[in-house]
Amino acid sequence: MNILIINLDQSKQRLEFQQRQFERLNLKFERLPAVSVNEISQERYQELGFGWQRPLRKVEVACFLSHKNAWEKVLVSNQPTLILEDDAVLATNISNVLNEIHCEKLTEIDLINFEVRSRKKIISKMPVLKLEHLNINLFELYQDRTGAAGYLLYPSGAKKLLERLKNTAPAIADGFIFSAYELKVLQVEPALIIQEDQLEAYGLAAKSEFDSTIGRSEHYKPIYDSIDQKKIFKRRRIIGQWHMACRYLQVLFKSQKRFISLDKERFK
């Protein structure tokens, strides 16, 4: 199975971290150069950064464009591809799970999310696929709100995301992906990927090994140019929240909202 790691040219420490990790896991990956903020002109930033529920920082636009480049590679290769950000920490059994998923030859799935990030998700009440000898369940994922550090994207999903971009403004990468309700998405449990900055929250490490090159959006407070601009973004956010509420009502009787488990022994 193809594996892409999005990595900035200057983030050599992160690339070395991934090289060591993949050597331990006996896996191979292809490095996908991340889009740098230096590659985005002010005009391009104005075009792409102000169509979502709040103004995007230039670094968030760069992150989104990096994921977009990954989607395009998936579509060209016509192969399911595991897309990773370069601070993704992988469980020791991920190779076996990827092989098993590959053997299942899933035909109606667009994306499988492997990540967990300290927030509840809305998933199906029962798993839609059980990998029993690996103690892995896959649930239908109806709504997620954070995390794009590790997901398996199928060509059908790449096509849908790129088609959506023709009519929908860029957003933070995970916000764009998981608000695309036309995607058929599964969630792996126990989760097999966690971002490095989440290790301490899950009792897996005392401190981060390297700093975030993006800065987490959940801690970001936007600055608006005017009251009128703030009203525009507030209206967009209300519409976004309305869509989320409608989605929840659509799946209410077949779903559950809860945290996804993680097997800490698989990350030691």
Rank of each mutant, 00 (worst) to 15 (best):
S226E: 10
K28H: 06
P55I: 05
L152A: 07
K254H: 07
R57Q: 15
Q250D: 09
Y142F: 15
G215P: 11
E108T: 10
K68C: 09
P55H: 14
F139G: 00
C63W: 06
Q195A: 11
E30D: 13
Q187M: 03
F64L: 08
E182I: 00
K184L: 00
K254G: 09
E47K: 11
S36K: 08
G203K: 13
E100W: 02
V61T: 05
L252G: 02
F64K: 03
L48K: 03
C63M: 02
E60C: 11
A62H: 01
W242K: 14
I122C: 14
E132T: 15
L65R: 05
G175M: 05
Q187K: 04
R14C: 08
F29D: 00
K257F: 03
Q143V: 00
Q195C: 12
L82A: 08
R24C: 05
F50M: 13
L204I: 12
E163A: 15
L131H: 07
P127T: 04
E163K: 12
S124G: 06
L4G: 03
L98M: 13
G147R: 09
F17N: 14
R14L: 08
L199Q: 08
L27D: 06
R236T: 11
K207D: 13
F50A: 06
H133V: 15
R266L: 15
D9Y: 10
E200Y: 13
Q21P: 01
Q10E: 11
L65I: 00
D211K: 13
D228W: 07
A148F: 07
R24W: 00
R258S: 03
V35E: 05
Q79Y: 04
V89H: 09
F176P: 07
E108N: 15
R54Y: 12
S41L: 08
V89D: 09
R44H: 11
L186N: 06
E265R: 15
V116N: 08
G147A: 07
I136C: 10
C103Q: 14
D110C: 02
